[in-house]
Design a protein around this nucleic acid. Structure first.
Lengths: 237, 237
DNA sequence: ATAATAGTGTCTCTTAGACACTATTCT
DNA sequence: AGAATAGTGTCTAAGAGACACTATTAT
């Protein structure tokens, strides 16, 4: 049999295969807290519980897995997040009551403000502080997945400024440092933090200041591709 | 409808879903070269071409995705590799002629010698040097995937000694350094390389020497968990 | 003036790069 | 002895940690 004939007769459903879903852990920074976007499940299994935004690939509309996750996130936030990275794929026989299930997980970051308006109109989606999330019973293994995503972001905070994508387009260095401190879980030396960012020329001074009760802080925005930069030396763990 | 009833009536096949496969990029180090394990495809599509070892999840036998990849690798090499890490998942409408396809890719490392005997008995599997692989027409997008896996290993060589899993259980520092040099693509300072490994106490002197035409080199083996260690400062890129 | 927050000067300490040096084997 | 390979001594440079200092705003 040649390949052409093989393909014509190929039946995808002849073997049973796992359920395949795509999920996203979307973080943002708001009111000095790290927050994650969760949705209330309206269908079984785990109906009524909070879980990660995600769903099935639409073979017609989606050309890639990223299309799937961006489509799902856009439904909930109204926009496509500026940072999206594949985290990990989890697949096993027990994580979903329906049977063998695989989920391709993405981590995403976006500014809180950029989606505030749209979120009001989506009744089932909500930003929740990570401290709150850790004491909730989430759907499936989503609690574990959020932990993995957070750990990945903690690592990124040690050797990059990727977390800046969770901030508005313009932000101050004290804001960015505080976000890194939340992720890393301990205070950082102001001087070290600023020095490495300045030395690598990752930010652009937008020429404005923002006051917060004391001396006004300089506002910056990220350069193109600053998210891809990695420092050769990590901050202390 | 309650969840119990929902699950009883749930039909996995009511929506079409992508094909799901698991593939592995298994590297080793032999004759001063980096090599990758490839198998000659015996079935469509791309029959006759070389491709990565992999296949479908067996819902009965595999409890996790790692079970699937370990099962497939064991069929080809006779043993389970000492290092296995999930690399990335690629899914899109065009990578497989059969239609929308998702592959969960793992990177694995093992000693060449540990599988030599078994490999002789598996007619369709072969270690190929990476230089050779780059000029071959492989099945699907496997050429691209090998490039991704190699790039990941290059990064690991800059901040860990994970590549040591591609060596026999005991090895010399010049051997390990040479492997890192192949991965990174440039010569390394002997002193820097040795200093950081010694300082972090990652290896154990097994009390033997191996001669290679000059002064005999000390043989070492990895400590438990040395693969998980990351240096705070990277080697130069 | 004082509090509050932003930002700098400068010293120490760790560690990678460079490269010359010594050590141990074989022929 | 000379070639070949393994391994060390030691200086320099980059950059993080520590922490005291200055700067700019509001009240």
């Amino acid at each position: 049999m040649d390949e052409k004939q093989f393909l014509a007769e190929y039946d995808k459903r002849q073997y049973e295969s796992p359920l395949l879903t795509v999920d996203a852990v979307l973080f943002t920074y708001h009111e000095e807290r790290l927050k994650v976007l969760l949705v209330k499940r309206s269908s079984h299994p785990d109906r009524g519980k909070w879980g990660l935004p995600g769903g099935f690939v639409d073979l017609e509309r989606d050309k890639t897995l990223e299309d799937t996750v961006l489509r799902k996130l856009k439904e909930k936030t109204g926009i496509e997040p500026p940072y999206l990275e594949q985290l990990q794929t989890i697949g096993n026989a027990g994580r979903d009551k329906r049977g063998w299930s695989v989920t391709v997980i993405y981590t995403a970051l976006m500014a809180y403000l950029d989606c505030e308006a749209h979120l009001d109109t989506v009744a089932d989606a909500q930003w929740l502080s990570l401290d709150a999330v850790y004491s909730m019973a989430l759907a499936f293994d989503h609690q574990l997945i959020i932990g993995l995503a957070r750990e990945r972001m903690r690592q990124k905070a040690l050797y990059s400024i990727v977390p800046a994508y969770a901030l508005p387009e313009t932000f101050t260095l004290p804001e960015l440092q505080h976000l890194h401190e939340i992720l890393i879980g301990k205070p950082l030396q102001k001087k070290s933090f600023r020095r490495r960012i300045e030395q690598a020329e990752l930010l652009i001074d937008v020429g404005e200041k923002r006051s917060d009760g004391g001396r006004p802080a300089t506002l910056y925005r990220m350069k193109q591709d600053s998210g891809a930069y990695t420092f050769v030396r990590n901050l202390e763990d």
